[in-house]
Design a protein around this nucleic acid. Sequence first.
DNA 1: GTAATATTTAACAATATTGTTTAATATCTA
DNA 2: TAGATATTAAACAATATTGTTAAATATTAC
Lengths: 118, 118
Amino acid sequence: MLSTTKMKRSLPDAKLDAVFHALGDRTRRALLARLADGPAMVTELAEPFRMSLPAVSRHIRVLEKARLVARNVDGRVHRCSLRAEPLAGIQQWLNHYRHFWEGTLDSLVAYVEHSKHE
Amino acid sequence: MLSTTKMKRSLPDAKLDAVFHALGDRTRRALLARLADGPAMVTELAEPFRMSLPAVSRHIRVLEKARLVARNVDGRVHRCSLRAEPLAGIQQWLNHYRHFWEGTLDSLVAYVEHSKHE
DNA sequence: GTAATATTTAACAATATTGTTTAATATCTA
DNA sequence: TAGATATTAAACAATATTGTTAAATATTAC
């Protein structure tokens, strides 16, 4: 059984603020979607967008502050990668509300089981 | 099986923008938490906060725009209630990333099964 | 060493957000 | 009708966000 000390608690407000704020911009969500396919350098990340490189650079910074993106500097190249932990955090937050849109836990199980078969 | 036409697609960018933005403020999240316990009028909702009533009123408006709150006007009283559909929408969005923080679909099933037994 | 490349910083401008206080509106109540 | 109640609207101020362009930095390549 789950001990009290091991029970995950919700992210603190400040973290939720940062993560939800970071996700509240479609450019940043697109960056995350790109990073879901694997790490990329800043220039690569910026390429698909109409906006300037500095603009994208700062979007990346916002994602970094929310810890949704990690950066590994190698020479002049900054390689960015997705960090999904904060998403697990908002998943937990969401769980408090799940029963409002899903009938029962069983329906979730059914949903997941189903999605395994495509 | 799921037909293509019945497959849920992700919320459009504009909706995700609105929902994530609405959730990116701790006051608004607290309002939602309160509404999870049942509908409430604006004054009730505002009572726990240090800020002015008009300020809370506008937070509610933001939640309404994101369709996270519905309002039922009855005389001079506006009764607000939680609308969780947009949360299901961000749940769907999250699902695209779930495999980054959970091992496999099986582990999710195990998790949910487990949580049924406390 | 000079030039090209990768990225950030700086300096601005345009908007958006958020909170305040003071009306304005509408609805009950006595 | 007069006053209390519930709520929004208006007008502001402070700050934050987001994008631009023009440097500044650091690193690699020739």
